[in-house]
Design a protein around this nucleic acid. Structure first.
Length: 98
DNA sequence: CCGCTGACTTAAA
DNA sequence: ATTTAAGCCAGCG
């Protein structure tokens, strides 16, 4: 079921240390679905519905924050994530080293 | 049932 | 450095 996918993704997202961020591709690779990065984003969108997860620590490969989300930047700042600008984080420095 | 869109990524030209 | 193409899955009209 797709819920299993949610579980795997959420498990990984939950493992992301504070002050770091992970990319969809990174997570997708960890869960064994390298090509399913899109599903990770989709799953995260429903992840909030499943429970409270740090989905704000997950950004795209460019470090671009989720479109249409205002608090994400603030949340990441609170965790000490370096920002390049209001909508992009310095993923180079805060990328989750797995 | 078909096709498009989307919190995506990587490789190649 | 920038643009194109392709790959994958789920939801919606």
């Amino acid at each position: 079921m797709k819920e299993d996918l949610i579980y795997e993704i959420l498990s990984v997202v939950e493992e992301i240390p504070q002050g770091n961020v992970a990319t969809y591709g990174q997570i997708a690779r960890l869960i064994g679905r390298e090509k399913n990065a899109r599903l990770v984003g989709k799953a995260l969108s429903v992840a909030q519905y499943y429970g409270d997860y740090p989905c704000h620590r997950v950004v795209n490969h460019a470090g671009r924050l989720v479109p249409g989300w205002k608090e994400q930047g603030e949340l990441l700042k609170e965790e000490g994530v370096p920002f390049r600008d209001s909508t992009h984080v310095d993923i180079k420095k805060c990328i989750w080293d797995c």
